[in-house]
Amino acid sequence: MVYKTNIRPAWVVLVLLMIFTLAFTLVKTSDNNAPEQKVQTEKIIPTKIDLSKFKNAEQNEKCLKCHGQTKYSYENAESKQTVTKRMYAELVLNRDVFYVSNHKGFKCTDCHSEDYETFPHAGNLRMETKANCIDCHGGDEKYAKFKFEQIESEFQASVHSEKHSKDFTCWMCHNAHTYKINARTNENLKQTITYDNLICLHCHGDVNNYQLLTDKEKPNLLQKHEWLPNQASHFTNVRCIECHAKNEDTLVVAHHIMSKKNAVRKCEACHSKNSILYASLYKQQVKENIQKEGIFKGLLMADATTIGPDKSNTLNIISILIFALTMLAIAIHAAFRIKKSS
């Protein structure tokens, strides 16, 4: 038989498979060795930021000499001894984060009472009302493109506002001291996803923060989302708000968080040609990428992971054409056969 002198394709495939596995393992290892994104570490002192660049930095240092670190010292007026105490974590402001945030140009007393300049701080200062986004940004032409009014009304209609009334403010999700515009400017989709999801997880992933607003038991997110296939992939490739917020085309980031019964549960809402993700998560990036790179490369480059596979019209047209030509060839061949046999 012929095969005795030839190599069976099965062996070739076996060898190729081994080479493939080897190559795959190598790529995988180099993948793991890739430098990981640097996690922002809590480096309170010393700061790397050149404070002289910020006009209010010097004045802010009056506050930050205590609030910029995890401990503070003062002289006990009676014993004349220097006392060192820990600063509560939520009262610590990291200069490295503040001075790259959107509000870096402000001085502390722009938003907080000037009475804070005396130490010890007066007890009634705790009652100070804090401004919300709309209080400063509302009606301001300069900020019109961010549509703060619409954000405010979406937020008012959201389940957060409905269920928690006045206890729930903008600051629950956006820290005035660290907030940095992200979805609109960040080209790295993965970073935007992580950034936005961490906002939700701040409460929904931390029972202490969650129970600040409710006495209810915090639902276990992993269990609640058990129905999601490839849960880890979903959690790292889309944001919570993709399914949990009502998306309006006019806003870059939706603020109308819905109750869980209204959350998107249909796979094809995302995994289809008219994926809702194009109107939310990919809105900014895909638009820019497609303009820059064209539809095919643009979508692949956008990290828009496998949503609806039906994303390239060119490929669809090519495949329909190939299919049609195959069918035509078969039809012609069959017609000739029938003609000849009759």
């Binding site: 095969y3 030839n6 394709p9 099965a10």
Partner: peptide, 14 residues
Amino acid sequence: NLLTTNGAYYVIPV
């Protein structure tokens, strides 16, 4: 195809 003679049908004589 590895174990039986059926695999021989898939060998293309060059």
